[in-house]
Design a protein around this nucleic acid. Structure first.
Length: 218
DNA sequence: CAATACTAATCC
DNA sequence: GGATTAGTATTG
């Protein structure tokens, strides 16, 4: 994975694209010396400082491009980021530059453009990431709310279960009804006897009847 | 082309 | 006045 800088202060203030801001000036600067054959053992071969100074004294070519030159180069870059030989030479003579300078400018510009693109993609990803994080917190609070509701509902269910349990214990079941009906029949049979004997013997006094009843049946 | 050297300009 | 920035150029 690429080493992504995640420092909190690494925000827009240090975006690479902001670094590119051509100034409006033209400088007469020393041209670089041609690379000579002295190869240092460690560092990369560098231009001869002595030669640069010498050429600066001679007042040779400018280093930084003028704003006019940059403007034209930018316009050309906007059309097509690649540079064919023909366009390169035309631009070079138009700008009074070496064709190699134009080529190098395009190369550097492409690098800058690539950085800008990456930067843009990064900011888009960051935006998406931030909103995802935000949504996550929203969803999490939603979860908490729903959990609370669920606990409440469970509580409610438990209460209802308890109530129905109580009701079941004290309610009349079908068995109860049948048992009662059975008893009723038995009693009715006995009552029939009682009624019958009451009518037969024409008892008016309950005690008298009762004694007679007990006597004749038991 | 990527990496980076180089350096004027600018910042702090 | 040293660190940083920005643009140009070189090297592999």
């Amino acid at each position: 994975m690429a080493a992504v800088n995640l420092r909190p202060d690494d925000d827009n203030s240090t975006l690479i694209s902001h670094l590119y801001n051509p100034e409006i000036y033209t400088q007469m600067l020393p041209q670089q010396g041609t690379a000579e054959g002295n190869k240092p053992t460690k560092r990369r071969r560098r231009r001869s400082r002595a030669k640069e100074v010498a050429e600066a004294a001679a007042g040779l070519k400018k280093r930084k491009l003028s704003s006019e030159q940059v403007k034209l180069l930018e316009m050309n870059f906007g059309n097509e980021h690649k540079l064919e030989t023909e366009r390169k030479n035309r631009l070079a003579s138009e700008l009074g530059l070496d064709p190699s300078q134009v080529a190098i400018w395009f190369q550097n510009r492409r690098a800058r453009w690539k950085n800008q693109k990456l930067e843009h993609q990064y900011s888009m990803l960051k935006k998406a990431h931030d909103s995802a994080v935000l949504q996550k917190t929203h969803l999490q609070s939603e979860i908490e709310k729903l959990k609370e509701q669920l606990a409440e509902a469970k509580n409610e269910i438990q209460k209802l279960v308890e109530v129905s349990e109580r009701n079941r214990r004290w309610s009349v079941t079908m068995d109860d009804v049948q048992a009662a009906a059975c008893w009723g029949e038995i009693l009715m049979e006995e009552y029939e006897d009682v009624f019958y004997s009451m009518q037969e013997n024409n008892y008016n006094e309950p005690v008298e009847w009762y004694l007679n009843y007990m006597y004749t049946n038991y």
